[in-house]
């Protein structure tokens, strides 16, 4: 990973994504987090601006505090349960999404399209895939039942006009199609990459750039995207990662398990 230098602070793309995504979480929220950058970003928010943030893991955990340097290899090991308020069967923690207790779901993505649909199942046709990816896990449940933040690398091969396979539904075909298909709740809210923060137009549900990271131009974002991006008129620039934020991330992930 090439390190980018802005002012006097150097950071990797993964660190930038984790910091920018963590800033979107609001104190008091209940967040359903996936492993990797989402877990790191949620923990960062919890230790930073959102001390009353409650993290849920699909392994069946409510309100843990991840121990620095002891990051779990998935959301299903004992490292996910440290100082938690409750452990419960995984089916039951997922059912909390259906009941409506979760403010936001937060996960990574392999491939996304202009309406925020995610693919983590197949590259190429499902009956004859070029690559069989690991699959949905809880992704389909989370994205079907609550609002979503996705954290991923901004690359043209990942930001495509149409995903090969809708594993986790976003706004489907845009407009009101998500609700019409039978998903009245939630939807894709934010996509955070190493270049920008994106949202979705209220009417058309097309992806739109809300904010650019320091030193990034809209054209650069567009060049790394496989479909025409909208931009909001009052496009902003995100604040540089602060040294305290980077220090926290490196304390949490000293072995660069998630942020390599």
């Amino acid at each position: 990973m090439t390190e980018q230098t802005s002012a006097s602070i150097a950071y990797t793309a993964s660190e930038l994504i984790a910091i920018m995504a963590g800033r979107l979480l609001v104190d008091g929220q209940i967040v359903f987090a996936g492993v990797g950058i989402p877990l790191l970003a949620a923990t960062l928010a919890q230790r930073n601006h959102a001390p009353r943030l409650t993290i849920l893991f699909e392994g069946g955990v409510i309100g843990p505090f991840i121990v620095p340097g002891e990051l779990p290899p998935s959301t299903n090991e004992q490292r996910c349960t440290r100082r938690a308020n409750m452990v419960l069967p995984s089916t039951d923690v997922l059912l909390l999404l259906q009941r409506g207790y979760i403010d936001v779901g937060f996960m990574g993505g392999a491939q996304i399209d202009r309406f925020g649909n995610l693919n983590s199942s197949f590259i190429g046709p499902a009956d004859k895939p070029t690559i069989r990816l690991p699959g949905t896990g809880g992704g389909n449940d989370i994205s079907s039942l609550t609002y979503m933040i996705v954290a991923m690398k901004h690359e043209k091969r990942r930001f495509v006009e149409h995903v090969d396979f809708i594993t986790s539904p976003g706004w489907i075909d845009g407009g009101a199609s998500r609700a019409e298909r039978g998903l009245p709740m939630g939807g894709m809210w934010r996509v955070v990459t190493d270049l920008a923060v994106m949202g979705f137009d209220e009417e058309t549900r097309e992806m739109e750039v809300l904010a650019l990271h320091p030193g990034v131009s809209f054209e650069q974002v567009q060049d790394n995207t496989g479909f025409p991006l909208r931009r909001v008129p009052e496009i902003t620039t995100t604040a540089l990662p602060r040294s305290e934020e980077l220090a926290l991330i490196r304390e949490l992930d000293p072995g660069r398990l998630y942020t390599a």
């Binding site: 999404l97 259906q98 199942s121 499902a126 949905t136 389909n140 449940d141 079907s144 039942l145 396979f165 809708i166 594993t167 986790s168 539904p169 489907i172 998500r178 298909r181 039978g182 998903l183 709740m185």
Partner: peptide
């Protein structure tokens, strides 16, 4: 269930 609806899964 209220998930899996509308997806290719």
């Amino acid at each position: 269930v209220r998930s899996m609806i509308g997806s290719d899964v």
